Structure formats: structure tokens, C-alpha cells
Simulated scan of single mutants.
Amino acid sequence: MNKIINYLFVGGAMLLILTGCMTSESGEVTIQNADGEVLATTSDFAKAGLEYQKQTEQYAIALTFKDENMLEEITKSHIGEETNFYLNDELISSPRINMAITGADFIIAGNIDEKTTEQLVDTINNQ
């Protein structure tokens, strides 16, 4: 009987550890303006993909909004401003919006390391 209780305790502890690991891997992706106003969150994206751009030898993230008009609304109302892409509390990229962008698809690129791009892509795709 004690062996069974010990196995249940150890099994339960392992389940809690594994659950904690899975939870810590998930996160929140946000796009914010310079004032910290949240313009979009993880749930606004339909999908994300990892790309490697040979010309610049940098990683990029291909993103697709669920709402095809959302990208245009964000970019149109923030022309000339920087937007900040966050994964949890870590700033990933701060592109400047030069013009309104139509459609649902866009790419963020720059000095983003492979691990960070993979985490961001996984966060969006596993929501």
C-alpha cells in the first residue's frame, strides 16, 4: 500500500512539473504603440511562420491576422510611428510604420535570433 501511495505521489509531482514546464513555454505576443497601448495580442493572429532571409542572413517572422482589415487599421492610424512587438515582456522588434499596409499578411525582420523567432511562432500557432 505504501508503494502505491509513493508511486501516486511521485507520478503526481512529475505531472505538476511537466505541466509547469508546458505553461512556462507559452506566452503572450503583443503589438504596442509608443505609449504602451496594446494594438494586437496573440489571439488576433491566425498563424505565424519562421523564415530565414538569405540576403540579409537574418531570421524573420511571417504573421497573418485573423481579421484581414486589422493590419490596415493599425498601420493607417500609426503612420510615422514605431510599433513594438513583445513576446511576454521582451521587446522583439520596433519597426516604424511608413505607410498603411493592406491584407492580413506581413513580415517582421531584423536582428531577431532564431530562438526568439521560434518562441514567438510557437506562441501564436499553439494558442
Rank of each mutant, 00 (worst) to 15 (best):
D35P: 04
L120G: 03
E90V: 14
M70I: 09
R96A: 04
D67T: 09
K3H: 12
S24H: 07
T75K: 00
E90A: 13
S43M: 09
I108N: 02
E25G: 07
V121M: 05
L8S: 01
T42A: 07
F65P: 11
E37R: 10
K66C: 11
T19F: 14
Q127E: 11
K66G: 06
N33E: 06
A13P: 07
M99P: 00
N98W: 03
I61F: 04
A46L: 14
M99T: 09
I74K: 07
M99W: 04
V121C: 06
E90M: 08
G27R: 04
N126Y: 15
T83W: 02
G80P: 01
L63Q: 06
T42K: 10
N126G: 14
A109R: 08
E114C: 06
A109C: 13
A100Q: 01
N33D: 15
I74T: 08
E37Y: 01
F65L: 08
D122Q: 13
T19P: 02
G20I: 09
E72T: 11
L63F: 10
V10F: 15
Q32Y: 12
A60F: 09
T83I: 15
L87W: 15
T64N: 13
T75C: 05
T30E: 07
M14F: 15
A48F: 02
L18R: 12
D44K: 05
R96E: 12
D89N: 12
D44G: 05
Q53C: 08
V121K: 09
N33C: 08
K76I: 03
E82V: 11
T64H: 14
D105Q: 11
Q53V: 12
H78W: 02
A109I: 02
D89F: 00
G80E: 11
S24V: 05
N33W: 06
E114K: 10
A62W: 00
F106T: 04
G20H: 06
Y59S: 10
Q58G: 07
F85G: 03
Y52A: 03
Y86S: 07
K47G: 00
N69S: 15
